[in-house]
């Protein structure tokens, strides 16, 4: 029998990470994700893991770099302004091809913004927020259960592809409590890491680096990354489709926003409206194939993209639809969340 517990989203992220084998965590205080850090501070020592309250977000992400270089499953977390600071380290982690998980419990921006939930770091997460041509896999949980479950997926993907994986949540998801089922904490996938720094006993020395000064060497390294990204794009798209067959209107929303949208879809379908929902679960790679399938139909639906930001995922939907269908948008940010009433009003106006 799986264990059932009542837990907040932030704590579920920490719990899920520990169950996925995370044994090194470094973080710096920032609202609204502090429960995650506190959970790690309490639990890591109990299971023989390491918790460090870093002196800055820069130190935290570079500690994650170091822990990852030894082959440990490692994580840091933050919220929007702190994520901006972590971008340096994420770029290095991507360049050195290290596996790591980074959680962003998004709040309002730009600047110090506020501490209300938002989704306005979508571009930063999906477009490589730091310098250089790189990508992070991005997973967007929509419930506390998924906050727990996606950690197992995130650490698995990070190890499999030797790549940073971002969990993109928001303050609403982080703060709310829900009952969830938790597993045994057994690792599902952990490949051998012969590249890790462990001391060069009985082997040649290993070097972890992202620096390629020799002519042509960086281009070669970058092409290798691009090849990996192509494989990830082909194999790792994830989404949830709801009532898509015969839908004349399809809402596209992720994370917390998708939960509100789902309520609208179910209410309107009861009233006979042909409406469905696409909830991207991986924001990178963006689930393009489902859009390509739907827009290949004879009768194409209208897509309504709804975000707690001002048209960021909208660009990915447009890139996926490639002009074959109408794409409309509704978004609020800075603490505002589109309500069911606003969404229904928008749908009626389409």
């Amino acid at each position: 029998m799986p264990k059932k517990i009542l837990i907040s989203g932030n704590e579920a992220l920490a719990y899920g990470a520990i169950h996925a084998g995370c044994r090194f965590y470094a973080g710096y205080p920032i609202t609204p994700q502090n429960e995650l850090t506190a959970y790690m501070a309490k639990c890591m020592p109990e299971i023989g893991g390491i918790f460090i309250q870093a002196e800055s977000e820069l130190a935290a992400i570079n500690m994650v770099f170091g822990a990852a270089a030894t082959g440990a499953r490692t994580m840091t977390s933050s919220s929007s302004p702190g994520m901006s600071l972590k971008q340096e380290g994420i770029s290095y982690i991507a360049g050195a091809e290290l596996p790591a998980v980074i959680v962003n419990v998004m709040r309002g921006g730009p600047g110090l913004g506020n501490i209300a939930p938002a989704q306005s770091d979508y571009f930063q997460a999906t477009r490589s927020g730091g310098h250089g041509d790189y990508r992070c896999l991005v997973l967007a949980p929509s419930s506390v259960q998924e906050a727990y479950d996606f950690m197992q997926i995130a650490f698995g993907l990070a190890d499999k592809y030797r790549n940073p994986v971002i969990i993109l949540g928001d303050g609403m998801l982080g703060q709310m409590m829900e009952p969830i089922e938790v597993g045994s904490g057994k690792l599902k996938y952990s490949p051998p890491k012969d590249w890790a720094l462990t001391g060069c006993k009985n082997r040649k020395p290993n070097v972890v680096k992202s620096f390629f000064l020799k002519e042509g060497a960086l281009e070669e390294a970058n092409l290798k990354l691009q090849k990996k990204y192509k494989i990830i794009q082909n194999k790792e798209e994830r989404y949830e489709g709801d009532s898509l067959a015969g839908a004349e209107t399809i809402i596209v929303a992720y994370g917390t926003m998708a939960r509100i949208a789902k309520g609208v879809v179910h209410e309107l379908r009861k009233k006979g409206k042909k409406i469905g929902l696409i909830r991207p679960i991986t924001l990178w790679p963006f689930p393009r194939k489902v859009f390509q399938g739907i827009t290949a139909r004879k009768k194409r639906p209208v897509f309504l993209v709804i975000e707690m930001s001002y048209g960021q995922m909208l660009e990915d939907v447009k890139l996926s639809v490639e002009g074959r269908a109408r794409v409309e948008f509704l978004g609020r940010s800075g603490g505002g969340i589109p309500t069911e009433e606003e969404i229904i009003k928008k749908i009626k106006s389409l």
Binding site: L58, A59, N62, F65, G66, A69, E88, G89, Y92, A96, L197, T198, G199, C200, P205, N206, V207, V208, K209, S210, F211
Partner: peptide, 11 residues
């Protein structure tokens, strides 16, 4: 000739 890691500037 032993295991080495790079680090970002200052880190």
């Amino acid at each position: 000739d032993f295991d080495c890691s790079e680090a970002a500037h200052g880190r």
